[in-house]
């Protein structure tokens, strides 16, 4: 009995002398310590498990009170789970002890932390007790943030992926809105553009053409249509432009030269409608003025 006891103690001393080379302890007959596979990148909240397999001779036991107490803490590392199982093994008994540690310690920089040293109380068949010390296990603690743990909360991510929102319809609406905004902006530019920076837009005849296009064919609308056309001529001429001014108008604005005859036609039509009382059908007049204003607009833009 005494011999067995000596063997056991000798074996344990050999194991302790060997530690912290855990892999070497694993090779000791009768004792096997299986540490976590990864000793780096451990973060706050991680759970690390150590498994200790111990072969004891027949009659020797590990007292229930001899295992580390669940809930014990050391340097911010808490033993959160203790599981003991035993089975027959040849002449003796094999005890398998699982110790789960959770890391509650924190650090702003990577540091070496340790799973605490643990003690196992064993009693031999003759009632003699001995203590087996399981050595510390060092590991590298990795902070969640580099500079400050205070930012950890910000950087925390949900453990569960939130359910995805159906965005296909939103994409369609987004497309419609983008189209509306773009076309609205283009329209605003077209309407309000200054000739100085957009020479082809915002001209007097473009303005007149837009106004005339919107007119409905009523007797009153013909006067308004002529008003817009005359206003465009006046703007280009720099004053009131009348039929007798056509030549100087064209001379002053050569871009309208190709449409000289049509300009004369417009003034004749204007005189007939406004001053000679030769009222034509309103729809015909509006149609003619639409066509003329478009033509003069093209001259204005230099594309006629």
């Amino acid at each position: 009995m005494m011999k067995n006891m000596m063997l056991l103690i000798g074996g344990l001393i050999a194991v302790l002398g060997y530690f912290p080379a855990a892999s070497a302890a694993d090779e000791q007959p009768g004792l096997q310590i299986i540490n976590p596979a990864k000793s780096y990148g451990i973060q706050v909240g991680d759970t690390l498990s150590r498994r200790i397999v111990l072969d004891l001779p027949a009659g020797s036991t590990i007292a229930k009170a001899g295992v580390p107490l669940k809930g014990s803490k050391a340097e911010g590392i808490e033993l959160v789970g203790v599981e003991v199982s035993e089975s027959d093994s040849g002449n003796g008994r094999q005890y398998s002890l699982r110790l789960d540690y959770q890391v509650f310690a924190s650090s702003a920089k990577p540091v070496v932390m340790r799973l605490p040293q643990a003690s196992l109380k064993m009693s031999a068949q003759d009632g003699q007790e001995s203590v087996l010390t399981i050595p510390q296990w060092p590991f590298w603690f990795s902070p969640l943030v580099v500079s400050s743990s205070g930012k950890a909360g910000i950087n925390m991510q949900a453990q569960f992926r939130p359910p995805a929102v159906e965005v296909a319809k939103l994409h369609a609406w987004l497309g419609v809105c983008v189209c509306l905004v773009v076309s609205g902006l283009l329209a605003l530019i077209y309407i309000n553009a200054d000739k100085k920076w957009l020479p082809f837009m915002g001209g007097a005849f473009a303005h007149a053409h837009r106004r005339i296009k919107r007119l409905k064919a009523t007797p009153g609308s013909t006067k308004e249509a002529f008003y817009h056309m005359h206003a465009a001529f006046n703007q280009w001429y720099g004053g009131n432009c009348f039929a007798q001014d056509i030549d100087s108008f064209v001379q002053q604005n050569p871009r309208f030269g190709k449409s000289r005859e049509d300009i004369a036609r417009f003034f004749t039509s204007s005189n007939e409608q406004l001053f000679f009382g030769q009222a034509k059908d309103a729809s015909e007049v509006i149609k003619e003025l639409k066509q003329l204003s478009k033509q003069f607009r093209n001259c204005e833009r230099g594309v006629a």
Partner: peptide, 10 residues
């Protein structure tokens, strides 16, 4: 006046 007063007026 001739140059400024428009016809047809609004």
């Amino acid at each position: 006046i001739i140059n400024t007063v428009v016809v047809p007026g609004r």
